[in-house]
């Protein structure tokens, strides 16, 4: 995996009060410029991991590193962390508090102590990036679920973080909403933001992410998405299944040597290209 390590957890242990350990000796890295999908079964610790990375939870062992330096969980340390790392929680209603969309998005930048003009510019930029500029004056309680999700993300984007962590951002969205959100995330990635997304959708992870981290009972396993999502052992341990693209790739590879080098396909287009190869063509019925 390429890219500088921006945020990392080193030898982290964590447990909720009166609960069993969620992580023991966990090492985890988020690399700059990469998209990372975080996958695991319900209760595997995805949300906990994201909250540890964003400073929302304090590990009882190990440390959180930001650009190689240990983060102190005091006001100054967390302010520095949160101007670099932003977490968007799964339920947008856990984040939206203001009476209008624009005001809610302005909350974070104002907490950074920025002047009003700069805040207005950031709000406009974030709303534009999330394609909700027309909703700036709308009351938050009048938004659809998808619009609330976008507003919550805009609230984080307005902080101009280098790392944006999203907890199941596509959950509850219709297919069109999912595609629009992925296009938005692609735009943010193109603008230099590192994006981490927790999801149960292995097909989405294979298509979207550069890297994938699978949370199993034995820890987090991170690597290139195509490689990690082809590992039946890890996927089974993480309570997941093979992505359809990988399953199709395995099926096609079994039919001819031309597929041997590929781990995919990751998209329908790649599948179509593979299917057009002669080895497959000879076997296709008319």
């Amino acid at each position: 995996m390429s890219g500088t390590v921006l945020v990392a957890l080193r030898d982290v242990s964590f447990a909720y009060e009166d609960g069993p350990p969620v992580f023991t000796g966990l090492d985890f890295e988020v690399r700059e410029g990469r998209t990372l999908a975080l996958l695991g079964r319900n209760g595997s610790g995805k949300t906990t991991l994201m909250r540890l990375l964003s400073g929302g939870l304090r590990p009882y062992g190990g440390e959180l590193l930001l650009s190689g330096r240990a983060v102190r969980h005091d006001r100054k340390g967390l302010t520095a962390l949160r101007s670099t790392v932003q977490l968007v929680v799964q339920d947008p209603d856990d984040q939206l508090f203001a009476a209008s969309v624009g005001q809610d998005v302005s909350f974070g930048p104002l907490n950074l102590g920025l002047p009003d003009a700069e805040v207005r510019a950031r709000v406009a930029e974030a709303l534009e990036a999330l394609d909700i500029a027309a909703l700036a004056d709308r009351p938050t309680h009048l938004l659809s679920y998808g619009q609330r999700k976008r507003t919550a993300i805009a609230g984080a984007v307005a902080m101009r973080p280098r790392v944006l962590i999203l907890d199941e951002p596509t959950a509850g969205l219709d297919p069109d909403g999912q595609e629009r959100l992925l296009a938005t995330l692609e735009g943010l990635r193109a603008g230099g933001t590192t994006v981490v997304m927790a999801t149960h959708d292995v097909d989405l992870a294979l298509r979207w992410a550069d890297d994938a981290a699978l949370l199993t009972p034995w820890g987090a396993h991170t690597g290139p998405a195509a490689e990690m999502l082809s590992r039946r052992d890890l996927l089974t341990a993480a309570g997941l299944r093979l992505p359809w693209g990988v399953a199709a790739g395995l099926f096609l590879r079994a039919r001819g040597p031309a597929y041997a080098a590929d781990a995919g396909p990751r998209t329908p287009e790649e599948l179509a290209a593979l299917a057009a190869l002669p080895e497959c063509g000879e076997r296709r019925p008319d």
Binding site: Q86, V89, D94, D104, F107, V119, A156
Partner: peptide, 24 residues
């Protein structure tokens, strides 16, 4: 429960006890 989760959500954006928003 909602109040607790909202506080967590706001903390991520630098909530320090004051809800600052832009005035239209």
């Amino acid at each position: 429960d909602r109040a607790a989760r909202l506080q967590t959500g706001l903390a991520g954006r630098g909530y320090d006890g004051a809800l600052r928003v832009l005035v239209p």
